[in-house]
């Protein structure tokens, strides 16, 4: 559930799945490079299932796996 900006954020970014290498700059979380859109989607679903986490698809097509 989303919290207000005034509240203590209570989420963790577990993984980031992208298809463009240039977007991987630095990260404290697992960042994965996928070859295609389908691979990215499949990787995201697999990781999210394993970690019981939620998935956000960014408008640029990348996936962020987060836990709230």
């Amino acid at each position: 559930m989303g919290r207000e900006s005034t509240m203590q954020p209570n989420y963790t970014i577990l993984a980031y799945v992208t298809m463009k290498k240039g977007r991987i700059l630095t990260s404290s979380c697992l960042t994965l490079l996928a070859e295609s859109k389908n691979t990215a989607k499949q990787m995201t679903v697999d990781i999210a299932k394993a970690l019981k986490a939620d998935v956000v698809q960014l408008t640029n097509g990348d996936y962020m796996i987060i836990r709230i």
Partner: peptide, 10 residues
């Protein structure tokens, strides 16, 4: 409401 529905299943 939310953009947490990133997968087809969700």
């Amino acid at each position: 409401v939310s953009n947490l529905l990133g997968t087809d299943n969700a």
